[in-house]
Amino acid sequence: MYMDSRPIYSLSYGGSNASHPTIIAHAETLSLLASLSPHDPLRPLPHVTFEDNYTVRVGNQTLELSYHGPNHTPGNLFMYAPAQRVALLIDVVFPGWAPFSELAISGFIPGWTAAHDVLLTFDFDVLVAGHVGRLDIEDLHDSCASAINGGFDVTAAIGPTVAANPGNAWAEFKAYFRVAVQTCADNTTSRWLGVLGAADVFAFENAYRMVISLIEDV
């Protein structure tokens, strides 16, 4: 994978760096942390920030940092150690397990989903994912898209609610939304239960977040 080698930041052990480490982060991270500083003045801010790519060298070790847009959070980075063929991406992939509730409470679902494909462009042998021990995100996406595009009988699903709440648009939408999410959750669970750890535990919450994204983000 091509990585822009500029800017390059070189660190050395010992001296002031040993007791006062240099914090490197994406510019979005600095912006977010700075907004919290008035309420949490002890929270350290990054000393060095970048926008796209950044290479860190410590002695003969190299770590490549790259940003591919917001996913779990704005500023969430891909990290790659080329010599060791190790990639790191936190709060996106949950090896062997379904994601945490509401797709890991991610802020931007299209970016979070796309991050899986970006990760596969790295040439790695080891992935450091940050949590637990593989929900097929494409399958969840397709199941939810199918659910909200004719995947169930809408009239039958919301008829009783409409009859009981005439003119109440929120009640109608909630009834529709609940059935759409449950339809997606049931379909996904039926295919992944027993394959992924806890595939059923957050099935509804993950389907809920995906349906919201399909409605709002596309």
Score class of each variant (00 low, 15 high):
Asp4Arg: 13
Asp4Thr: 06
Asp4Gln: 13
Ser5Pro: 12
Tyr9Val: 06
Ser10Glu: 13
Leu11Asp: 14
Tyr13Gln: 15
Gly15Cys: 11
Ser16Glu: 15
Ser19His: 12
Pro21Cys: 10
His26Ala: 09
Leu30Glu: 08
Leu30Gly: 04
Leu30Val: 02
Ser31Glu: 08
Ser31Phe: 01
Ser31Leu: 03
Leu36Ser: 10
Pro38Ala: 05
Pro41Asp: 09
Pro46His: 09
His47Pro: 10
Asp52Met: 06
Asn53Gln: 11
Asn53Arg: 09
Asn53Lys: 11
Tyr54Phe: 14
Tyr54Ala: 12
Tyr54Asp: 10
Tyr54Thr: 04
Tyr54Ser: 09
Val56Glu: 13
Arg57Pro: 08
Val58Lys: 15
Gly59Ala: 09
Gln61Ser: 07
Leu65Phe: 04
Leu65Ala: 03
Ser66Cys: 01
Tyr67Pro: 00
Tyr67Phe: 00
Gly69Asn: 01
Asn71Glu: 03
Thr73Glu: 08
Pro74Asn: 11
Pro74Gln: 09
Gly75Trp: 02
Gly75Arg: 03
Asn76Phe: 00
Leu77Met: 02
Leu77Cys: 01
Met79Gln: 08
Tyr80His: 03
Ala83Met: 04
Leu88Tyr: 06
Leu89Thr: 02
Asp91Lys: 06
Val93Gly: 07
Pro99Gln: 10
Phe100Gly: 08
Ser101Ile: 00
Ser101Gln: 03
Ser101Thr: 05
Leu103Gly: 01
Leu103Gln: 01
Leu103Tyr: 03
Ala104Cys: 12
Ala104Gly: 08
Pro110Leu: 07
Pro110Ile: 03
Gly111Pro: 06
Trp112Arg: 03
Thr113His: 14
Thr113Met: 12
Thr113Trp: 15
Ala114Gln: 11
His116Gly: 05
His116Ala: 08
His116Phe: 06
Asp117Met: 11
Thr121Asp: 13
Phe122Ile: 01
Gly130Ser: 04
Gly130Tyr: 06
His131Phe: 08
Arg134Val: 06
Ile137Asp: 15
Cys144Ala: 01
Cys144Arg: 01
Ala145Thr: 08
Ala147Lys: 06
Gly150Asp: 15
Phe152Gly: 15
Phe152Ala: 13
Val154Ser: 14
Ala156Cys: 13
Ala156Leu: 14
Ile158His: 15
Val162Thr: 12
Ala163Gly: 13
Ala164His: 11
Ala169Cys: 05
Ala169Pro: 07
Ala169Trp: 14
Trp170Leu: 12
Trp170Val: 03
Trp170Thr: 09
Ala171Tyr: 13
Ala171Trp: 11
Glu172Met: 14
Phe173Ile: 06
Lys174Gly: 12
Ala175Asp: 06
Phe177Gln: 07
Arg178Trp: 06
Val179Trp: 11
Gln182Ser: 12
Gln182Asn: 13
Cys184Gln: 04
Ala185Leu: 00
Ala185Gln: 01
Asn187Phe: 07
Asn187His: 14
Thr188Ala: 02
Thr189Glu: 01
Ser190Ile: 00
Gly194Thr: 02
Val195Ala: 02
Leu196Lys: 14
Gly197His: 08
Val201Ile: 06
Phe204Trp: 10
Glu205Cys: 05
Glu205Asp: 12
Ala207Tyr: 00
Tyr208Gly: 05
Tyr208Pro: 07
Arg209Asn: 11
Arg209Val: 02
Met210Gly: 01
Ile212Gln: 15
Ile215Asn: 09
Asp217Pro: 04
